[in-house]
Computed example of a mutant assay.
Amino acid sequence: MPNGWKAAALAVLLSAGLTACTYGAPSAETATAKPTVKPTAGPTVADSFGNVDFYTTVSGDSLAGVAGSFHLSERKLDEFNLLQPGDPLPPGTKLRLIPAPGPMLGAKGTATTDPNGIATSYVIEPNDTLGGITYRFGITEEQLAEANKVPYTYEKGNTYFVRAGNNIRLQKNPVDSRSGAGKTVYNPFGQGVFYTTVDGDSFDSIGYKFRSTTAQLMLYNPSLVADKPIPAGSKLRLIPGDLKIEGAQGTFTADADGIPLTYTTAAGDTERQVSFRFGVSEQANLESANRPLTGTNRVWYDFTDLPSGELTPGQTISLALDKPIHK
């Protein structure tokens, strides 16, 4: 297996379990995405998620009125635009509704912007935080994850997405309005296992919807070609499944719809990689499907190395919440 794929698989796998990350500067007023409905008469500039980043004033606008319309305090609006309290607000003034550009606490890296001033990508610096990045660019954690086609951006105790040198996307590409309406087959954990495409679907539309990179979709579906359209009616696999990956080399059974039911462990397998291979969204879900009947252990199956989660080979474990194995 290529080293790049193993690193990507581990990064996606290990980033389960999103938790809040604190950042000193943000306040509650910027903790969520700004409204997408234009509340004032002037023109706005929004990012790819509909968050309004800029507003241009018209006759009759006031600082208090603009701030209230976009759920900001006057102090924040002054700060974002380097204004002093009481400064005039003539028509045609382009106001920032997100922090002024440039490095700040928790987000000291360099960003690229499009011609409209919308930040499109960012290079993470040491000591950056998830909260700092989302505050600086006026997006939510969920939007950041979607833009980068990953399930989550942060895991308690281990930072994999927010790491120095990582060049991350801050926006998503436009997708066809017809996309995303195909049939999805889910496993009992709520993870999409198969998706049947419709007209308008693309690597981006599928990637944003199911948090799968183009490289992953091509790996799971060898018939796909990166620079070719995906034909409507294509049944795509959204998890490795049949594809053996490092740390999940064993065999499995599935139901008539192809949903994995059980898995027989092989040497070197780990809980995390087994969970990733079969779309078990959280490690706790694998535990729920394999609780012991007696004792205080969290699962009945055995480990050759508990700290790393390496499993004893030859055990058949459940991959389905609705068909658990309890011993």
Rank of each mutant, 00 (worst) to 15 (best):
A111V: 14
L236T: 00
G200S: 09
V274I: 15
F70H: 04
P91D: 05
D47Q: 11
F252E: 07
G157E: 08
K156V: 15
I230M: 09
Y154G: 01
L321W: 06
V299F: 06
P43R: 07
L89K: 04
F203Q: 08
E29W: 14
T30W: 00
P2N: 13
N187K: 05
I245E: 01
V150R: 02
G250F: 01
P240D: 04
A248K: 03
N166P: 04
T93N: 03
T214S: 14
W300K: 02
Y220I: 01
Q84V: 10
G106K: 02
K34S: 13
L63E: 12
K235N: 14
D176P: 05
L219P: 00
D257I: 00
S27M: 14
A8H: 10
Q171P: 02
V123G: 05
G233A: 04
S205I: 03
V225D: 12
T304H: 06
L243S: 04
P222Y: 11
M218S: 02
T304I: 15
G65V: 07
Q283E: 13
P324G: 08
Y195M: 05
D204H: 08
P39N: 08
G268E: 04
T134N: 12
A248H: 08
G190S: 07
L77N: 08
Q249S: 15
T134R: 10
L72G: 01
L238A: 10
G200Q: 07
G157Y: 09
M218Y: 04
A232N: 04
I317D: 00
E282L: 10
A181K: 14
A256E: 11
D269S: 13
R169T: 06
S69R: 11
S275Q: 09
V162K: 11
T264N: 02
T113W: 12
A16I: 09
I230A: 07
